[in-house]
């Protein structure tokens, strides 16, 4: 079924099925952390998650119909935001903690061992508290994640060729489907019409906060790499270099 003919309920059920499995770091964590050991664990986990993220994106109805160039651009623009929203979702029921994976959980204070990371941890914890206050539902979470992916490159590229224009139009229709799905998810919560509108506004406004933290995180990771605190390799290196050179 094409996404344009799916009901919002059907669309949500497809993106719920696309959710990646729980991922484990699978390392013996030696505490206390050093700056290098914590950065290594964080980047190892990110690298594993990135591979699953590609698979997740491909399962979002309509994504693989976009041009390959658009698929690449979207993923390279939003990967850290997607990782951060996943982290926020896993941490939402654990105040003061960041649940990177079931076997890699950090308290705020543990961020002290990595220069400059505490500020990012605090921003992530603040976003997590806000989602906790709003009692974010799983259906809403999956819609927000798809919105981050599809919206990530919208204002930084302008289509030149007919093919690019076609892909751009497909992207806009796909965003319509995701927004419809989010509106539908909110409508299931038993709120008044006005409260539903406000909730939609509050949830989507949080995305700008996530973009901001992601930019901070990207700068931080680039600095850590430049200072040789951590070796960045494989897919993560490709994504990071893409971000450093591609803007």
């Amino acid at each position: 079924t094409h996404h344009s003919s799916m009901s919002p309920e059907e669309f949500i059920s497809r993106i719920m099925e696309a959710e990646p499995p729980e991922i484990y770091l699978m390392e013996d964590l030696k505490k206390p952390f050093t700056q290098a050991s914590m950065m290594m664990s964080l980047t190892n986990l990110a690298d594993k998650e990135l591979v699953l993220m590609i698979s997740w994106a491909k399962k979002i109805p309509g994504f693989v119909e976009l041009s390959l160039a658009d698929q690449i651009h979207l993923l390279k623009c939003c990967w850290l935001e997607i990782l951060m929203l996943g982290l926020i979702w896993r941490s939402v029921d654990h105040p003061g903690k960041l649940i990177f994976s079931p076997d890699f959980k950090l308290n705020r204070e543990e961020g002290q061992c990595v220069e400059g990371i505490m500020e990012i941890f605090d921003m992530l914890l603040a976003a997590t508290s806000r989602f906790r206050e709003l009692k974010l539902q799983r259906e809403e979470y999956v819609c927000l994640k798809a919105m981050i992916l599809l919206n990530s490159n919208l204002c930084t590229s302008s289509p030149q060729t007919a093919e690019e224009l076609e892909s751009r139009n497909k992207l806009l229709r796909l965003l319509d489907s995701v927004i419809d799905a989010l509106v539908w998810a909110i409508s299931k919560l038993g709120l008044s019409t006005q409260q539903q509108t406000l909730r939609l506004g509050h949830l989507t406004m949080l995305l700008s906060h996530i973009r901001h933290v992601s930019n901070k995180g990207m700068d931080h990771l680039s600095t850590m790499k430049r200072k040789n605190v951590v070796l960045v390799y494989d897919l993560l290196l490709e994504m990071l270099d893409a971000n450093m050179t591609g803007g």
């Binding site: 591979v51 699953l52 590609i54 698979s55 390959l68 993923l75 390279k76 494989d234 490709e238 893409a242």
Partner: peptide, 24 residues
């Protein structure tokens, strides 16, 4: 072509039908 070269792994994963779990 440069986009494909710059993002070899990403490009491969997007085009590959093999389970990314196997590739990981």
């Amino acid at each position: 072509t440069s986009l494909k070269e710059k993002h070899k792994i990403l490009h491969q994963l997007l085009q590959n039908s093999t389970s990314p779990v196997d590739l990981a």
